[in-house]
Design a protein around this nucleic acid. Sequence first.
RNA 1: GCCGGGGUGGCGGAAUGGUAGACGCAACGGACUUAAAAUCCGUUGGGCCCAACGGCCCGUGCGGGUUCGAGUCCCGCCCUCGGUACCA
Length: 908
Amino acid sequence: MNSRFPVMSDYPFKEIERKWQQFWESSKTFRTPVEVDTSKPKFYVLDMFPYPSGVGLHVGHPLGYIATDILARYKRARGYNVLHPMGFDAFGLPAEQFAVEHGVHPRITTEKNIDTMMNQLKSIGLSYDWDRQFSTTDVDYYRWTQWIFLKLYNSYYDQDETSARPIQHLIDQLTESDPDWSSKSDAEKEAVLSDHRLAYIADVPVNWCPALGTVLANEEVTHEGRSERGNHPVYKRALRQWMLRITAYADRLDKDLEDVDWPEPIKLMQRNWVGRSQGAYIDFSIPDSDEKIRVFTTRPDTLFGATYMVLAPEHPLVDVLTTDENRDVVNRYRTESERRTEIDRMTESKQKTGVPTGGFVINPAHSESIPVWIADYVLMGYGTGAIMAVPGQDERDWEFAEVFDLPIIRTVQPPNDFAGKAFLGEGRVINSGFLDGLEIDEAKKAAIAWLEETGSGEGTTIYKLRDWLFSRQRYWGEPFPILYGPDGSIRTVPETDLPVELPEMDDFRPAVSDDPDAPPRPPLSRAPESWRYVELDGVRYERELNTMPQWAGSCWYYLRFIDNKNADQLVAPEKEAYWMSPSGIDLYIGGVEHAVLHLLYARFWHKVLMDLGHVSTKEPFGKLFNQGYILAPVYRDERGLAVEATDVVDQDGHPAVEVQDQPNRLFTCNGQPVSQEYGKMGKSLKNAVSPDEINDEYGCDTLRLYEMYMGPLDASKPWSTRDIIGVNRFLRRVWRNFVGEDGSLLISTDAPSDELERALHKTIQRVTDDYERMSFNTAIAALIEFMPLLVALNTIPRTVAEVFILLLAPLAPHVSEELWSKLGHEESLAYEPWPTADERFLVEDTVTIAVQVNGRVRASIQISPSATEADVVAIAKSNENVARFLDGKEIKREIYVPGRIVNLVVGE
RNA sequence: GCCGGGGUGGCGGAAUGGUAGACGCAACGGACUUAAAAUCCGUUGGGCCCAACGGCCCGUGCGGGUUCGAGUCCCGCCCUCGGUACCA
């Protein structure tokens, strides 16, 4: 510190931050003991754990982590037992793909990336209990992921109890109630059980990418029907895959959202995803056949208007209905739609297509026959894959009817001025026999009653949610604890033999092919025989060769943090009960991108675990909060491609980062004109800013403060490196006013002035309220506003100084710890009790209130808070400017809101 | 298309139905300095009146409404960012 600039304004943040990070680590300041004093209240605050990528963090990543850290520190000071852990979601495609491309084992890259990321997290002073850190790829962890899978496999959903139960219970029931059960073969029994298990194998259409040798999730397929990675063709293909019966929980996944404190938009997204829909099944009989075709409709009231039926091209009864004359055209249509990807089928603004089967079904309402068509606007995956088409009340059906000239009957009377086509509004039922004259809701009920009476249908509720495709043909995932016998029968790996470790392999690439029909050969099919084959009770079994999807590990990690070292149990019940009750995690922060899948999958597993008695709450995440994105300017060249933001300058040669928000800037990159817009910060838009740069120049206390000061936590807001200086000035000012140039403390034992004491207590109250409601930007503003009072003093009274440091500590812990220790404290301030505002200092002697005349402010007056309304109004009226506006007018009304405002309403 | 979030100074933002623009950035002026940096003090939504003190008018995307009083509540639009997409 002997540069040519004298050390006056700069505080030694690098030394301070290094010192305290080392101190916290070596003294395990933030370790949450395995056994805590359970008489104290608890606060479990969790971040959605990250995928350890190789490129490191940008300043957008830690936004949520800083927020949870502030709350963790605040709650510790308030006397809570705080559980604040961090881990890594490390299985998955990127590591595997990197491994394939560079020939490095994914475990090596993963470990290296985790290491890098932990260092980055530690360098911003996050107060995690690192003793609880783990990765989903740790054998000790995925052993329990496999264990949960066994529970899923060995359970079924009891519709009567609306709860999962051990499969043995179902077997007992069947043995008792079904006289044929005991005479069935094992395979026959298993076929029945498989229809009930929560984990089961089924032939399902999947996104199969032969070039990558794996199935892909829908999100991994582009709109052109190609793989996001590598742009290879993807085909819809039926493959035998593991599925999880999440649909059994559809109702509870929908209903239990009522009980959680989540942002409404997120709840809504989950509800939409579950897609609960009330209506009826209606059976249409086929003439001269015993077969019936069942449709689902939300509008049973419109049955009389069903003028034709449409089946999905894949519907199993298409063959039965198709006449010989139509067979060719039907088959051609089916082949065509099969070839098109589902995404193509859903492309909008496309004219409806379809072909008649030549077959007919009977409309049960009036026993007349209606033609049956197939069309790809009907999806096999929803409802029954068949609809009754009611063009009069459905836009899609109307459109189809227009194209193919099919009859249209209105069954709801539209208003006289209605000029549209299909009518979806309210009205009275017409053309519908016994339903005529009813309102739609009544007609629905009446129609369902009639269907049930006549045996031609029933009321029902269906869901859009589909079962969860749970296998991947990849190496870098959890192996299934499943074995296949020589006859193909399934046997589970005994719990005592868990974990099933991933075998060491040199070549973990999936088998790839150009042939769309090539069978999937997952990497594990090339695992050593010693791994692939297992002998149990004298029988040689082959292991399941698929692995679990990346979501698996993140479905329950929050439970393992509670008891991460437990070798005998997933989590000890009494610890789970303490940390999870009464309503799960107290605060869960993460990005909206996980609004649906992760949160839905985790809720599903949690409910299964609850049903089976392993956890005590019905929901895992009591309170959820989504942090906003950090945006940054994106510069695009004339081709629309993003260019490195750091290479962009304006017409005067200023770097773009300094003038991004100035008007009339013409930006160029290497001489080429570029346009500016705002986009989510990240590598792909080439606008990432590394936290390391900020740490280096200003320190991480400044980084933390700036990220919180930018705006509300849940809002997306643009990063502006230029603005950082504001909060940095504040911290330097704090330092300068506490520590003299010679390093001495500018602290006195004087009693604070009354004015200072009042301001201090007001600040305590503001900051405390703001922490409670996660309004960190205004908490910082309150602290900044308090500073000038200290600047005015030569020395700061110790009592004031200590409180101020404690208020600042959650936001800027390093500089606060340093000042705290300079004040002579030997312990960390992490567990110092939180300051409380003293009511005596919060009451004001005088308050300033506004005086309005007819709602317009005309004066401010000083009054005593205890002044009576009459006094206040009198003072208000006597004000010169107010009097001017009252002059010669009649006062009609006098409104006084104590401490706020006087409004005098006058006539003309 | 449907569903949801959001539009407040040059910029980020603040405001339990009660004085719109706290706090910060930028800009401008001043103090200190040989000078610069840093620091400190002040001004800063727009328009108008005043020598000054001070005062008036307009202003929270647009148009209506409720209210003594609306950035905030209600109705109808526009723009923007997300989610979703033939879900019967």
